[in-house]
Write a protein that binds this DNA or RNA. Structure first.
Lengths: 348, 348
DNA sequence: TGCTAGCACTCTTCCGCATTGACTGCTAAC
DNA sequence: GTTAGCAGTCAATGCGGAAGAGTGCTAGCA
């Protein structure tokens, strides 16, 4: 691809991808001519298609068939979408998105699930949402609650909810005074901190002198926070996994099984998204080598609050998916999600 | 079926179901004769099969094909399993089950997941486990923990873990004395009770005179417990959902999709199990009308601790599934699970 | 030089038809 | 009551020819 493609070749490629996305069938020169380029003859288009085939943009399933786009064709097509993004969504669709988002949502988890639902419903593809739960979580308060059974519940109140699923042994130290001092020290050290700061905290540098006798408790609390973070690192939601089976590309059980096995394993979904560059707005990966799943394309978008990435949404569909629409939806979701998250912040 | 089947007819039916379970192909008279009844000729068996067809036990897909068992044939087959249950599992299989159960398991939730995994792995069918979480949960202690933000965390310590995801507004009543009294009253009323008792508690009958001024808190706590119970009524775990796609019965995408849609909706799974009689040991339901899913059979078993049903395990597979093995596995799981749960009890 | 009409060529898809093979049902003999 | 033997039925397989879709090529035209 040393040389730039002629305008006409580009136009033909766009038309071909458009038609192929809509029909899933090999596209003939006549198809392109009748619907997109009535000013030239099909023979001319045939000649151009021949050239595009030599350049590796399209291929024929067999001699007497039309052309099917290859990866470079999709890439060119996707690369040109940004400019023509104007009317990707109908008014009904944007209204649908707004409505679904204004319904009552209790927890952060609900928001990502809802977002994934909306994306899947509007695009008709499988969607996922990976939220980075640990970002922006601040510790407001820590309490030690002595229980009857000799243990103590560690209660960590954050601005995103309460972490309280772990107890520690309080040994013989059940004296109220001891618990009070420990609580005061814990709040002094941890209060007001973001939990992601605590991943590699250096206690000794902080309050070495006061630490004597509370070392165990501090270690226990740090362990609790770290294990919480590990458990909640990537919160993966997948929606509409079965929608992929509607597309003829996945109309055989073997492929369907492979796809579902990948998509229902949250770890591998998380991996699918992990290696995207954080800097780019939309990542489009096509084909097995890029997307990790056979005959698929994955489009992902990163969602931010301020500078932090709070989550990544993605759509996985057949290579010939409706890129314009998907990118339009993901883009619109940025606005909608931003509004919801900001509103959420104000609430608290 | 006014008259009892002759012994020979029964033997032929059993053989036919055996072969059909193994092969999935219509079974011919010669198949049965060569492997199961060399003492008679295939012509004799043909005559018997003809009679069994007239009685509605078997059918022919077409004139020149072998016979396929119908629901009554399966039912008879299943009904006779109990007696011959002797060697349904190999030693390797029972060892596998024991090993998988002695690996570390943290929570009740883990146990049901592990049980479902084991059942699915040993049988090679889709399995599910519905645990009735609310049974046998006793309230050990209730604490009110005032938080900085003016709210109070309601902490309910049970012998199965801590319920602590809800806060209540403490209004202006933050005086320590008030909180202490409320806590004392709450423990007096709720302490030591099973949470399922609280579904329809009558506060007024209990401690009417002391209740003044704490009504709000009591109502809030009851609401919290009830909503917890509602959320945790049926904890559904499904394992090996994709295994069904390995069987030729589900070798087309349409059926596979329907199956997966049902199986991944926890509500409908819960329904699949809900209408089984609690009294019988194993419930076997065959066909769409009984099982709710097309071309499927469902076998469920109830697991008890004492008299209470703590969970139901089930296997869903093609009609021609290996009933002997499945029932053997579910039965062995009763013992294994019983051991685990009792050990669990001792721990605490 | 670029475009186009026309035509031969290629390859898939579909349909009909004959063949094969797997079973059964029936009948006559034991 | 059982069996051997045989005719009959039906699905599955394979093959050939016709139809259809689309291309590539070539000769002529602007």
């Amino acid at each position: 691809m040393s040389k730039e493609l002629s305008e006409r070749k580009k136009k033909i490629l766009h038309a071909l991808v458009d038609v192929y996305i809509a029909t899933g069938q090999p596209v003939s020169s006549a198809d392109i001519q009748s619907k997109y380029m009535p000013e030239v003859s099909s023979a001319t288009i045939r000649a151009e298609l021949s050239a595009l085939e030599a350049l590796g943009f399209v291929e024929q399933p067999h001699t007497s068939a039309g052309r099917v786009p290859l990866k470079p064709a999709y890439q060119l097509y996707v690369g040109d979408i940004d400019a023509s993004r104007d009317k990707a969504l109908t008014d009904a669709e944007t209204a649908f998105i707004r409505n679904r988002f204004t319904e009552k949502l209790d927890e952060v988890k609900d928001i990502s699930r809802r977002a994934a639902e909306i994306i899947s419903d509007v695009t008709n593809y499988t969607s996922f949402f990976v939220s980075n739960c640990n970002v922006n979580v601040m510790i407001e308060e820590i309490k030690l609650v002595p229980l009857k059974n000799g243990k103590g519940l560690v209660l960590i109140v954050t601005d995103h909810g309460i972490i309280s699923d772990k107890t520690i042994d309080l040994d013989g130290n059940l004296r109220q005074e001891y618990v009070d001092t420990a609580t005061r020290l814990l709040n002094k050290v941890f209060g007001g901190r973001m939990i992601c700061e605590l991943e590699a905290i250096d206690l000794d540098g902080e309050i070495r002198e006061e630490l004597d006798g509370f070392r165990d408790i501090f270690d226990a609390v740090i362990t609790i926070i770290q294990s919480y973070m590990a458990e909640h690192r990537d919160d993966v939601v997948v929606e509409g996994a079965l929608k992929m089976l509607d597309y003829p590309e996945y109309n055989n059980v073997e492929d369907a099984k492979n796809f579902l096995a990948v998509i229902s394993d949250h770890n591998s979904v998380s991996e699918l998204l992990s290696d995207t560059e954080d800097s780019i707005e939309f990542s489009v990966r096509i084909g097995k080598e890029d997307s990790g799943v056979d005959k698929c394309a994955i489009i992902t978008a990163a969602y931010r609050v301020g500078d932090e990435i709070v989550g990544k949404a993605g759509v996985i569909g057949p290579e010939r998916m409706d890129y314009k629409k998907v990118i339009g939806v993901l883009d619109y979701m940025k606005k909608a999600l931003g509004a919801v998250l900001d509103g959420d912040k104000d609430d608290k």
